[in-house]
């Protein structure tokens, strides 16, 4: 998975900046269920937490590029996205795409209660089941932050470390071990 290139998102960012005062004038941030604003929402922009952008596969977002309207909601074998379906290990077989992805508004996820959630706030979705981790993440005990310990931080979203379709953290190749003293100086 890769991040979208920011250059590609620049026009969207400009649109979001222009739209921001309008949204502010309209009172509290509109519930996405009613007025999702100018979709597609820019990853990483206009949110309460300064975060790394979600790790979309390049060119895959916005989903509405292909999914213009709601599709067949019945669980089935997919022809496209088959690599995700094939490697899906997150409570399978009781879940499939539309448990988390919204069928009507394809650029959003939804909570169990139907509330739409943009990809930049996917932690709300994860937190429905993983409440203990969500609580720890919000105060900085779980997960990773970079930047200033006493100031501006960048948060890593759940999905920056855990593949949402296969969340177990993958084993890594370790860096080389230290050279034992008896082998130094040779």
């Amino acid at each position: 998975m890769t991040f979208p290139r920011w250059r590609d998102l620049l026009p969207l960012a400009v649109a979001a900046v222009l739209a921001a005062p309008l949204a502010a004038a309209g009172g509290p941030p509109a519930a996405p269920a009613k007025a999702p604003g100018p979709p597609p929402e820019v990853p990483g922009a206009g949110q309460d937490i300064q975060a790394e952008p979600p790790p979309f596969t390049e060119g895959i977002f916005p989903c509405t590029q292909c999914h213009e309207k709601a599709g067949d909601p019945s669980p089935r074998q997919l022809a496209f996205h088959d690599e995700i379906q094939g490697g899906f290990h997150h409570g399978a077989p009781d879940r499939w795409c539309l448990e988390c992805h919204d069928n009507g508004k394809r650029d959003y996820l939804h909570l169990i209660n139907g509330k739409l959630v943009p990809f930049t706030r996917s932690y709300e979705l994860c937190g429905q089941c993983h409440g203990d981790k969500y609580r720890d993440w919000k105060v900085g005990v779980h997960g990773k932050r970079t930047g200033m310990w006493n100031g501006k931080k960048t948060y890593y979203l759940c999905v920056n470390c855990h593949n949402p379709h296969n969340p177990r953290y993958k084993a890594l190749e370790p860096e080389p071990p230290p050279i034992p003293p008896q082998e130094q100086g040779r």
């Binding site: 779980h142 997960g143 990773k144 932050r145 970079t146 930047g147 200033m148 310990w149 006493n150 100031g151 890593y156 470390c161 953290y169 890594l172």
Partner: peptide, 14 residues
């Protein structure tokens, strides 16, 4: 200077 130490920032598992 207010920044995290280098080991904090690199740790892949937080």
């Amino acid at each position: 200077d207010g920044r995290y130490p280098a080991c904090v920032e690199i740790c892949p598992v937080g």
